Computed example of a mutant assay.
Amino acid sequence: MLFVGFIEEVIFRGFLFKAILQKRARLAIIISSVTFGIGHSVNLLNGAEYWQTFLQIGYAIAIGYLFTILFIKTGSLLPGIFTHGVLNAFSVFSGQSTFEQDTVVSVVLILISLGYAAFLKRLPQKTCASDKQHCLDQ
């Protein structure tokens, strides 16, 4: 589970975000975050419940947004890779839960992710490593 975070960060922030960033930064943020979330629909192939997968897609979009802002602010994939790996590792220890419990956890993850991303956006702008332009100023 630790290595899945590495691979996903390289794909969604390292390649996809940087490729779209060349044209429009805000669009790159949205596409990177949403495709990261939708990518979690693959869990349906592993027998996950529809409602659990839907909730996971929702909070994965928010976490993807946070990781994208984190990448913009730091200019590095490493904080996202580390945090993603830790989150994935902790998910291994989750047990059976009810719809209500999963919904509460999902809402909390969304609120924390969006709140932290909003906080990060207020910090001084970091230039993107790929093109040395201010990512959010485009």
Rank of each mutant, 00 (worst) to 15 (best):
V10N: 13
Y59L: 05
K132N: 12
A19K: 11
F12H: 07
S113W: 00
L114E: 02
P79M: 04
L114W: 00
S130K: 09
A129E: 15
E100A: 10
T74E: 13
E8W: 01
F3D: 11
A118H: 14
I31M: 07
G75P: 03
A118T: 15
I112L: 14
Q52L: 09
F12R: 02
R13H: 13
K126I: 06
A117W: 00
L44T: 09
G58V: 09
P79R: 01
D102V: 04
F17V: 14
V34M: 09
I61Y: 02
A25T: 03
L120W: 06
I112S: 03
V42W: 01
S91C: 04
F119I: 12
S113I: 02
L114F: 08
Y116K: 02
I69H: 05
K23D: 08
I81E: 03
I63R: 00
I110F: 03
G39I: 00
S106E: 12
T53Y: 00
A48L: 08
F54T: 06
I81Y: 01
I31S: 04
Y50C: 06
V105Y: 05
Q96H: 15
V86R: 13
I38D: 07
G75K: 03
L21Y: 03
K121A: 13
K73A: 04
L136T: 11
C128Q: 02
G5K: 01
L2Y: 10
L111Y: 11
M1R: 05
V86T: 14
T98E: 05
K73H: 06
L114T: 05
Q125N: 10
G85F: 06
A60F: 03
G58D: 09
Y50A: 11
